[in-house]
Design a protein around this nucleic acid. Structure first.
Length: 470
RNA sequence: GCCGCGUUCGUCUAGUGGCCUAGGACGCUGGGCUUUCAUCCCGGAAAUCACGGGUUCGACUCCCGUACGCGGUACCA
């Protein structure tokens, strides 16, 4: 059996890798790993208009942040380098010319204006908007015009009245009528290939065995099939993944949802949790498990088990999953993750690395974080006492009572503090736990108060009460 | 418009002809534990399996049609 080689082909046209692309990357990577194959990253930077500088680096960095490692790519090289399409221009040109020589493609000199006019009249007459093969039928001196410096494109010469089909692992046989297929531009006038020429040539040259990509590519696949046949190349296995959706069911977009992988990382979602969540889109563990490792996913995944309907991206479930991952972390790994996450925040970073009490806090905070970024609001009052402006008459009245009570605590331990607070509550009907919380934290709820008061220290606690009385 | 893909609780899904009076998970909700909030545990509501026809002794499961949703329809990917 020939080896499994999969790939993702991101375009550096956004801020970062799109979460939907990360999903596709996960499936491609996992499937390759499962089969002891290779996973390749190829940068499809053929759109010069939308090109975003630095996007490629960001995409690669994000992939690595998720531990999705590529065996070949622009960053690590490989036997089929270069892996950046902009560096492969002569290859596409050569292949386009091969197609022309075979009569499978042709030069076209039509202006943008003519194409627009053609399209609008076709639409007006309710015809399928397609190129009319004008240049194929009328231009006889293409070589001369090109030699004369005229701009041109190369178009695919689609034979009408034919059935074009392919087998999709996830969806079965998909068939198109070639009359529906446009004479797609293959090589643009700037010398760059379009996606269609680029993918087919590169996937073949790089020996990609499985083309696993999003559903939005289904309708261009027949063009690719024609291309493979025109070159005389065997077809790869196709698998079109469902596309992730917004709550309104449209394709997941940045207007309606956070889509950049780094956004999720920046909120403090753990890569493992995100991957686990993504694995559950369109797929389910054979044992019905919800929580499982990437290694287990690799072991169990099979392309044919993927459900084709487009799932709505439910951030709620992601949050739950993230919390599950956070609370099963041991203190030292949680600490490391937080240290990393709060690299810029000196207060929290310092507290975590120097304060012995951070162990206690970590333990208590664990079950109360949906994401790493929740940690700061859970502990902020350790570094900054709540102001008088947050207190009501009720709070002010209770201060003397609680102060005397706390002053009597001999051994400043959470258990004793709790006992004292409980006693106060039983004696004084106006004394309530929620009042105490506000006094020290500015909020009615939070991490267990006795433990946090212990962390704060007797002196600091009493000082805070005194300050409030001033 | 045309072409293609899809359709099981609000959401992610199980389900490949009888085990389904449809199971799990998130969310929602009631309760327990508890110093608040969480965690954790127990319970509940929630899907006439989009609809209509077939096929079959029997259909969520197979076939056809319809509706709806989504995707594509670029010298963007």
């Amino acid at each position: 059996m020939s080896s499994v080689r999969t790939r993702i082909a991101p375009s550096p046209t956004g801020e970062d890798i799109h979460i939907g692309n990360l999903y596709t990357a996960l499936i491609n990577w996992a499937y390759a790993k499962k089969n002891n194959g290779q996973f390749i990253v190829r940068i499809e930077d053929t759109d010069r208009e939308r090109y975003v500088k630095g996007a490629e680096e960001k995409i690669l960095a994000s992939l690595h942040a998720f531990s999705i490692t590529n065996d070949e790519g622009p960053d690590v090289g490989g036997p089929y380098a270069p892996y950046r399409q902009s560096e492969r221009l002569p290859i596409y040109k050569q292949h386009a010319e091969e197609l022309i020589a075979k009569g499978k493609a042709y030069y076209c000199f039509c202006s943008k204006e003519r194409l627009e006019e053609l399209r609008s009249t076709q639409q007006k007459n309710k015809q399928i908007p397609r190129y009319d093969k004008y240049c194929l039928l009328n231009v006889k001196n293409a070589k001369e015009r090109i030699a004369g410096g005229e701009k041109y494109v190369v178009r695919l010469n689609v034979t009408p009245d034919k059935k074009v089909w392919f087998d999709d692992v996830i969806r079965g046989k998909i068939e198109f009528d070639s009359n529906q297929i446009d004479d797609q531009v293959l090589l643009k006038s700037d010398g760059y290939p379009t996606y269609h020429l680029g993918v087919v040539v590169d996937d073949h040259l790089m020996k990609i065995s499985h083309v696993v990509r999003a559903e939005e590519w289904i309708s261009s696949t027949p063009k690719h099939v024609i291309l493979y046949e025109s070159f005389g190349w065997p077809l790869p296995v196709f698998a079109h993944m469902p596309i992730l959706r917004n709550p309104d069911k449209s394709k997941l977009s940045k207007r309606k949802n956070p889509v950049w992988a780094s956004w999720y990382l920046g909120e403090g979602y753990l890569p493992e949790a995100i991957l686990n969540f993504l694995a559950l889109q369109g797929w389910s563990h054979p044992d019905g498990k919800e929580l499982f490792s990437v290694a287990e996913f690799i072991e169990k995944i099979d392309l044919k088990d993927i459900h084709p309907a487009g799932p709505i991206f439910d951030i709620n479930k992601l949050q739950w999953m993230n919390q599950q991952y956070i609370q099963t972390l041991d203190n030292s790994s949680l600490k490391n993750k937080l240290l990393n996450f709060y690299e810029e925040n000196q207060t929290i970073h310092g507290f975590l690395s120097n304060n012995k009490a951070s162990e206690t806090v970590l333990e208590l905070a664990k079950t109360r974080m949906k994401a790493l970024k929740d940690f700061s609001s859970l502990v902020h009052y350790l570094f900054e006492s709540p102001g008088k402006d947050m207190m009501s008459e009720e709070h002010m009245q209770i201060i003397p009572l609680i102060k005397t009570a706390l002053e009597q605590v001999a051994s400043w331990k959470s258990s004793e503090i709790l006992a004292v607070l409980k006693e106060l509550m039983s004696k004084q009907s106006s004394a309530k736990m929620s009042l105490f919380y506000v006094l020290f934290t500015g909020s009615k709820q939070g991490l267990p108060l006795p433990e946090m008061l212990e962390v704060l220290g007797k002196d600091e606690v009493l000082k805070r009460l005194e300050n409030l009385q001033k």
